[in-house]
């Protein structure tokens, strides 16, 4: 823990979270808050996806499944069961992590592209299950009852509370990435990414490591899903498990620099702003996928290390600060 305090990125993460929390409060800027919460969610999803793709070398095309399941469980617990939002979100996170552990023990027996395909299968199967699941409203989904906002001091207050909670989850996501990166556990993951068979012969218990990181990478996205869908007031299978969002997470990660903590945040932030700009621009809104796809193609072709990889090449010593 003491070594964490000596790392510049640790303080930068706290600073970032502080700025996110402070900016919209100043002048009570609700529009800015809504923009920033989307950036925060993008950072949460991307940095946790990075634990699989960047750290372990396993492409998860269905990462959004954790976010969506977290949203459903959180909403169910908070509205149907009437639990406090924070408790609901945490319990949702734990349950989704357990589900992920279960899935992981199965599909992580697969390597490389086979694993990637299986994650698509998991996404589609879970979505199909939820769309047929009666207690969760099948394809129409669920709504947050007005009463559910009461424990948080009414709807207006509840929206601010959720915002701060999401910012907290964002900071935790980045800190988690940083902590894992410098740990022995992280070293084992990187060894698996480089050459799984060699890593096993060196003593890394790849089966257990992969299952744990898959499960860990599910936790904070699930918590964020619970908070976000509560804030939005409703959930249904098509918005909870949006395949495109799952895939855009990969674009964000590659853009910023896969395997780096700062890269995940940078890529998510930049891409999310770009996407919001494109989606609201009257002329370009229809082309946001074209631009995203072209961007991804350019990045992997010209700078496979992403923006951070490019920074490393430009200033080699930047590695010590930007991890």
């Amino acid at each position: 823990m003491m070594t964490m305090l000596r790392r510049p990125l640790f303080w930068l993460i706290l600073l970032l979270a502080g700025i996110f929390a402070w900016l919209p409060v100043r002048g009570n800027n609700v529009a800015l808050r809504e923009d920033l919460i989307l950036v925060a969610v993008a950072i949460i999803l991307t940095s946790n996806l990075n634990l699989m793709i960047g750290y372990t070398g396993y492409v998860n095309f269905g990462h959004i499944v954790f976010y969506g399941l977290g949203g459903y469980l959180g909403l169910y617990l908070a509205t149907v069961r009437g639990w406090h939002l924070v408790i609901s979100a945490l319990v949702a996170g734990v349950l989704v992590s357990l589900v992920a552990l279960l899935f992981g023990l199965g599909i992580l027996r697969l390597r490389g592209a086979y694993f990637a395909l299986a994650t698509i299968g998991v996404l589609v199967a879970v979505q199909a299950f939820v769309a047929n699941f009666e207690p969760w409203g099948r394809s129409t989904g669920m709504y947050v009852s007005f009463d559910s906002y009461a424990p948080l001091g009414g709807p207006r207050h509840a929206l601010w509370t959720t915002y701060f909670l999401v910012i907290g989850v964002m900071a935790l996501s980045l800190l988690l990435s940083l902590a894992i990166k410098s740990s022995k556990f992280g070293l084992g993951l990187f060894a698996i990414r480089e050459d799984e068979d060699a890593a096993i012969v060196l003593g890394v218990n790849a089966t257990v490591y992969k299952a744990i990181i898959y499960s860990v990478s599910a936790f904070l996205p699930a918590v964020a899903g619970a908070l976000m869908f509560f804030k939005n007031g409703m959930i249904d299978p098509s918005i909870a498990f949006e395949y495109m969002l799952s895939l855009e997470g990969i674009v964000m990660l590659m853009l910023g620099g896969s395997g780096t903590v700062a890269g995940a945040a940078l890529g998510a932030g930049l891409y999310e702003r770009l996407r919001s700009y494109l989606l609201t621009s009257p002329r370009l809104s229809e082309f946001h996928l074209v631009i995203a796809g072209g961007l991804l193609l350019l990045v992997i072709r010209l700078a496979p290390g992403g923006l951070i990889g490019w920074l490393y090449r430009l200033i080699p010593h930047s590695r010590e600060v930007v991890e």
């Binding site: 070293l187 084992g188 990187f190 060894a191 990414r193 480089e194 050459d195 060699a198 890593a199 060196l202 003593g203 890394v204």
Partner: peptide
């Protein structure tokens, strides 16, 4: 482990 330094390789061991 190609992407790691020599030292990191041995640290894994």
């Amino acid at each position: 482990l190609q992407g790691m330094t020599v030292l990191e390789n041995v640290i894994v061991g």
